[in-house]
């Protein structure tokens, strides 16, 4: 009986942990929208602040020196910029348009990876609600919407507004095929950002749920010895979560670049 009560508690605790908090700071509505500050807004701001401050500090010599030679922290930042620019953007968007789209993909990558990793820090659990902003579907959907519009902007800039939409159907195909192709293409236009949304949020949520579920038996059984196994397992999962945080940020950035690149080079 007691175990059942506990298990319901545990379930709600876990859900509470991976969900956004209630409103922390009430703000007046903007155009009828409630823009009050919740924990995920705070975590997002924190991620943005960490990324902005880190890159502003680490890139000082790039703004002041003619031929900057990186060292220490700026070397690490340069590695990130070099990785995104040369391994993600140039191969998938092409060298001609890389310079215009690298900042967007870099913002995706750095902001998502920072938000993912900040979500792993237990310290933020002192504030009620879940700590991972990128586990929230609203956040990932907003980011995926940016990719959605970036694809249209990228295609329209290179091929013109009509040219971009015409690229949905490859030239020279029989017209009856269009009846199948156009709905599929329209569907894929929305499926792509939807997949981005779900993949990132689900991955970020799943790890936390797993870790909490592994800790739960300690309280369910009211036995501290179970903690030995649970904690050991969770240490391992934490390492896995670090990898997942990096991989999911990489996947989101990579797929955004691939989609933008496909709009720019539709023949590929």
């Amino acid at each position: 009986m007691a175990v059942e009560e506990h298990s319901q508690d545990i379930g709600s605790i876990i859900l509470h942990h991976v969900s956004n908090s209630d409103v922390l700071v009430q703000l007046p509505p903007l155009f009828g929208l409630d823009i009050s500050i919740t924990k995920h807004v705070l975590m997002l701001w924190l991620a943005g602040a960490v990324v902005t401050a880190g890159f502003l500090l680490g890139s000082r010599r790039y703004r002041t020196q003619e031929n900057p030679v990186p060292s220490g922290f700026s070397n690490f930042l340069e590695f990130i910029v070099d990785f995104v620019h040369n391994q993600i953007v140039i191969p998938h968007i092409g060298p001609a348009h890389a310079r215009s789209w690298s900042p967007l993909i870099l913002t995706f990558f750095t902001l998502i990876v920072t938000a993912n990793l900040l979500g792993l820090v237990p310290l933020f659990d002192l504030i009620p609600g879940g700590g991972t902003a990128t586990a929230n579907l609203n956040v990932t959907a907003s980011l995926a919407a940016i990719t959605f519009f970036a694809i249209i902007v990228a295609g329209s800039r290179v091929h013109g507004v009509f040219g971009h939409w015409r690229n949905m159907a490859p030239p020279g195909i029989a017209w009856p095929v269009l009846f199948i192709l156009i709905p599929i293409e329209l569907l894929s236009m929305f499926v792509r950002p939807f997949a981005l949304t779900m993949r990132l949020a689900a991955n970020m949520t799943a790890g936390h749920i797993a870790m909490l579920a592994i800790l739960a038996p300690i309280f369910l059984m009211a036995n501290a010895w179970i903690g030995l196994g649970s904690v050991a397992l969770n240490v391992g999962i934490s390492f896995l979560e670090i990898i997942v945080s990096l991989v999911q940020a990489y996947v989101f950035s990579l797929l955004s670049a691939v989609f933008i690149g496909a709009a720019i080079n539709p023949q590929h």
Partner: peptide, 8 residues
């Protein structure tokens, strides 16, 4: 959560 979307 439109507020969160806005802030994102």
């Amino acid at each position: 959560d439109p507020g969160l979307i806005f802030w994102t």
